[in-house]
Design a protein around this nucleic acid. Structure first.
Lengths: 226, 226
DNA sequence: ATCTGATGTTAAAAAGTGTTAAATAAGACA
DNA sequence: TGTCTTATTTAACACTTTTTAACATCAGAT
């Protein structure tokens, strides 16, 4: 998955690039519209373009138009500092798939990107959801590995499935019965006890970063807090 | 926070209503556009409207126009089954703040709602932050911790949910039945007694700062006074 | 003042969870 | 196939959270 990010604010640009890279998107950063279109022509095959609207040398809308001439398909998301509806409408006219008003959370950007991939039936959205950043930990649900300060540890299948589910709903409660039906097939008493055992195992795996915790919501389920 | 949800599919409607209620948004459900505008006129003061586009009796766009005539401010989100950009543009023309293409995850809807509140500088940001200042106490509803002069104490799930609800309505009365339906699911006699027990527990937790108190409004509910 | 329903409080009962270790199941390999 | 290794489930016990029960008190109505 390759992403072209065009953003003139160096701080925000670097931050976003780093974040997207961490999430598994290979991200190129262009400093303005001119550089943006250069990247696009030379590098081609991006799966997503994220364009700031207000940029020196060539603004986001002009950039988007030129990108559209080269590629009718690639999804474009605008970052706009204003919440003006006119901006938005113009954005959609040049073929945007979504727009985000600053300030926004990086998590939100990611969700919108995933939503677009989902809409496009790109299964890559799934693939992407397989790497998670949890404080100092990196969890790869594909290979069932958990890395912390360079130490890798291997998770078992069940451990990994459960942690993945928690990651996908981080900071939100995951109901017991939902997790049980999804991972164990049914939510019988014994499976529930088994799940409790796995929660203990995961807590041990994650004990080295105290900013991460798996919290129990009595009678409801569990919540992964980062 | 009050939300007007207009959705003709009963399953989806109920599901969303339940979810939003659980997340702390008092949500009314209308079955079609006509009912929607009726709710809006009678009930007024909604903080957000979520409108399905395709509905019998009055479609989402017409509904939105009528809502706009009554209220220039209230944010509107459209739910649309098509991903057609034309729909979207028309949506923005009648003053929408966002649109979501079905199928979507409830989490995504929530994020977009929060984004809009953030944009509007609504204090909803507090709800998002999930942390409250109560005199000398700091309450973090995410981690269920209450801190006072450096001493942390851990709250249980129910304690935390109840305190959070009181915080969200601080210096305002919270009705018994609303709290019960939100936290316990229904307002039966025994749940009400259980809630009373929790009020006692919270009072004990908060006893070290006399400027804070949970006051009973006889026959109505409770009010957190700071 | 007295009655009645609502609330305050405490303690016991019931339900749910945390954790460890043993038992069983499932695979891997010679 | 049998043995070894590892993953998962079951069992057991300690502990926490929530509900129910019981009794005391309070507020408002008659």
């Amino acid at each position: 998955m390759k992403v072209l990010l065009t953003e003139d604010d160096p701080n925000l640009g670097m931050l976003l690039q780093e974040y997207l890279n961490a999430k598994g998107y290979e991200t190129d950063l262009a400093r303005n519209g001119e550089e943006g279109i250069k990247f696009f022509i030379e590098n081609g095959n991006y799966d997503m373009c994220i364009c700031d609207v207000m940029m020196p040398k060539k603004d986001g809308f002009s950039l988007a138009k030129e990108i559209r001439m080269k590629d009718k398909e690639v999804p474009i998301i605008f970052l706009t500092a204003k919440s003006m509806k006119e901006d938005t409408i113009q954005g959609f006219k040049v073929g945007a798939d979504d727009y985000i008003t600053k300030p926004f959370s990086m998590e939100e950007l990611l969700m919108r990107m995933k939503a677009i991939f989902r809409r496009m039936h790109k299964q890559e959205a799934e693939t992407q959801a397989n790497t998670f950043q949890l404080g100092g930990y990196t969890f790869d649900a594909q290979t069932n590995t958990l890395t912390h300060n360079g130490n890798q540890s291997k998770l078992t299948t069940k451990e990994s499935e459960l942690l993945k589910l928690l990651c996908q709903n981080k900071n939100q409660s995951v109901s017991r019965s939902f997790a049980l039906k999804l991972i164990w097939g049914d939510d019988s008493y014994f499976n529930a006890r088994s799940m409790d055992v796995y929660i203990t195992k995961l807590r041990k795996h994650l004990k080295d970063d105290t900013s991460i915790q798996i919290m129990n919501m009595h009678g409801e389920g569990f919540k992964l807090i980062v």
